[in-house]
Write a protein that binds this DNA or RNA. Sequence first.
DNA 1: AGCACGCCGACT
DNA 2: GTCGGCGTGCTC
Length: 761
Amino acid sequence: MQVQDKVLQVVLPTPLRQWFDYLYPQSLDPAADIAAEVPQVGKRVRVSFGRRELIGLVVGVSDQTEVPREKLKPVLAVLDETPLLSEAMLAWLLWVARYYHQGPGECVLSALPTLLRQGQPIEPEHPPHWQLTDKGLKMTAAGMGRAVKQWRLIELLRLDPAGLPMSVLRAHGFERDVCRRLQEKGLAHEVDVIPKGEGVGLPDLQHHTPVSVHKDVLAESPLTLNAPQREAVDCVISRLGQFAPAVLLGVTGSGKTEVYLQVIERVLAQGQQALVLVPEIGLTPQTVARFRQRFAREVVLLHSGLNDRERLAAWRAASEGKADIVIGTRSAVFTPLRRPGVIIVDEEHDASFKQQDGFRYHARDLALVRAQREQVPIMLGSATPSLETLAQVERGHCTLLRLPDRAAATRTPPVPQLLDIRNRRLQGGFSVPLLEAMQRHLDRGRQVLVVLNRRGFAPVLMCHACGWVAGCQHCDARMTWHREPPRLHCHHCGHRQPLPDVCPQCGEAELLPLGAGTERGEEILAARFPDVPIIRIDRDSVRGKDRLQEKLADIHAGHPALLIGTQMLAKGHHFPQVTLAAVVDADHGLYSSDPRAMERMAQLLTQVAGRAGREAHAGEVIIQTHHSDDPRLNLLCQSGYEVLAQQLLRERRESHWPPYSHQALWRAEAPKPEAAQALMQALADAAQQQPVVANGSVFCLGPVPAPMERRQGRYHVQLLMQADKRSVLHQLLATLVPWLEKLPEARRARWSLDVDPIELL
DNA sequence: AGCACGCCGACT
DNA sequence: GTCGGCGTGCTC
Ligand SMILES: [Zn+2]
Ligand SMILES: [Zn+2]
């Protein structure tokens, strides 16, 4: 074995499920490198790959390779001085890739911000500054003669006597060679800047003493906890430094956030960092303000609103340990932390934690695995935990910490009233008793909240003369009628078209809306309650920046108002003046072909009910349905989410559904339905050859056309695999994926694999 | 996935 | 004659 044979194992931005071996760069002597134990693992490299150049990441060093010598290419350049990801982080990411049967490249590189993935150099933590010398300070324009550029640099540096880093100079259009010229003339020099309080040199990944440990943790004093909160905080902090999952079960207003804050306080006091994952719309200015007000430490945010620069800065602050609290949405689960101390997943049941395209990971599931590998406690907070999480409690893998509603001591929470609308006259979905109830609460000067879980004006546009309905030309779906702006919009593929003036089939002009979305609900309520302000909250009405905040502020002003919106309205916000909360239509959750529909509806209804009468005023909750006798709906209203969830869990256990079994969903799509069907059939046949399928350990359902077969002009077919034992299922997937990758026919259709699917669409 | 090569139809 | 369609092969 010769040292020259050492290869670097590099992952690249390609969906291929493998890494690639490269020789050490020609500029680097592997022998010296290895003797000095210079770590290459975790650094970015530029390599030639096929006919292109890519940025990859070194995930391993080996003295063995299966690749014939002549095919090995050297790495073109190593881009980093120090590793960007620790070995532990890399090991976890590679585990994630295996779990989801994804390419290691796509998975590992998702832990890097875009700019780093593109190969941008990462500035050292304290870059040297260019500073004028005394001679430079005294220099005049005349003295510089024809060197205009150099003179302009002198002028710039004069503004900052402390000097400027190269990155700033570059932004002003100066390159290093101009600086060098000044240096040669003795007009400027490079100086190291050492911020006070910090030592010299780059921080060492392994032996880092947190500089912030001596700084104060708190900026304001914590609130006094009630007994259950105290118990919850004590439970978690007594397990710092070990893997300890806990569910924090409590409605909005039960004081979950204060529990998070006080756990984090202890974590920070130990010199460790906290990672907080929140749903897509949960990152409100109020939440962030609460964290920033409490702690005298840096809080960084990672959400979709950041640009590449901001994202890189936040990522660095987290990974270098400068930020003590990292709050982010789904993808923040991949943020490297220098000194992880606790992970918190707020509203853990929220659907936005599951990525629904490409690399279909679930951030809550990954957070659990990460907490286990990092040996830190993890808190999953929710008023309506997912059945998966409740099953973990049942198995004894997860501690249940219950926070009772603090308001419950002074008033009993309202029992939701099921309002049967069979045979009742409806005005755009609203029954007379519901409208009367609204009137009652508005007359008392209160606010009313109405959830209508459908965007737009109407879900269907129909011709009154001939019955024609507007369908999407790319999908098997009806186009949704929108008023502002007026047009037809397909919610499945995004296709838009102008509103027809006349029916394209018969030419008549009488086009009717069928059913109602929030836009029409707003219109109907405005006609019925002309003197009451109506505030609509849905994806369309809060599209602009700050629109949501303006509307929330309007609601908090407290005047009587009707709030109408989609489930967005039910999430996370606290409206003290609301005393009536209503759900216009609970039926689509009841008899859906999706087995998870009931769980989701129960979560929505519970959230909505939690909005009514939070403070001093007695609340009322009304749910319109055509099935007021439905046993599960009644169980939810009478006994609450937890009891219904137990019932749903029993049903899941009996039918061998998750969380009592494990699933993987294969999808194929192609312009021709036969191509997708044929591919999935070939896969099903291949699976049937495997003993685990033949003997029934893994059950295959399909291939079947997807619930909406034609979407975006392509036909979708799916094949579901299910097993009681996860390892059995995953072993099967591990043999089928490479088989399918090599199958020539697989190129005639696009295919993907969804491990632990949630939407079976 | 990208990106090449290569082999056939229908256009300047 | 070539421009361009997409089938097939390969990427250390
Ligand atoms: Zn018509
Ligand atoms: Zn469509």
